[in-house]
């Protein structure tokens, strides 16, 4: 992947497939590090599966529920001297099931992949999944950018889907403005 924002788009698809109703995308940046945290309230993963998801060679066609996305993100993190961790509570164990993926990057490492166009990633996630809520926060040393679709939904009511083109344009502009301010 050319941009970490593409990895984020990819990993969030796992949450969507896990039937999450709320997906959190948090980016915490310092001068030298970037932490990406993707949380969801989906069905989670059983321990046996959790052990395998990071190994691209153990996922076979028939059992392929996650695929190459996580190994790719892990590689991107580790090649900067960072790391990736996953915590998951399967539905079989708790009503509060869900998965958290955390990846830490060292930005000053030569092999750091730039974050890229995160606004497009957020827009595309909402565009493709208007019934799922996304809570996005990007904390940087100088500013914080955030967008929560639950707030938008409260204003729009039930008759206007979040992926209506004028709503998507609003989302893009709102994020662009926050990054520029």
């Amino acid at each position: 992947m050319k941009e970490l924002s593409l990895n984020i788009l990819d990993i969030a698809q796992n949450s969507i497939k896990a039937q999450a109703t709320l997906v959190g995308i948090e980016l915490c940046e310092t001068e030298t590090t970037l932490l990406i945290r993707i949380t969801d309230n989906g069905c989670g993963m059983e321990e046996a599966f959790l052990e395998r998801v990071l190994d691209p060679f153990s996922t076979t066609r028939t059992t392929r529920k996650v695929g190459l996305g996580l190994p790719l993100l892990k590689l991107a993190a580790e090649q900067t001297g960072g790391s990736l961790s996953i915590r998951s509570i399967p539905k079989s164990r708790s009503e509060n099931s869900g998965t958290t993926v955390e990846a830490l990057f060292h930005k000053d490492h030569m092999d750091f992949t730039p974050l890229g166009d995160i606004i497009s990633t957020i827009e595309i996630l909402i565009q493709g999944n208007p019934d799922i809520d996304f809570a996005f926060t990007h904390t940087m040393p100088e500013r914080t950018v955030s967008l929560d679709t639950r707030e938008l939904r409260a204003v729009l009511g039930e008759e206007v889907p979040l992926n209506d083109f004028s709503v998507l344009a609003w989302i893009r502009e709102a994020l662009t403005e926050q990054y520029a301010s």
């Binding site: 938008l152 204003v155 009511g157 008759e159 206007v160 709503v167 709102a174 926050q178």
Partner: peptide, 14 residues
Amino acid sequence: MKSLEELAQIRERM
């Protein structure tokens, strides 16, 4: 910051 008011207007138009 873009206002939520604009979203309310979108709702009206829709």
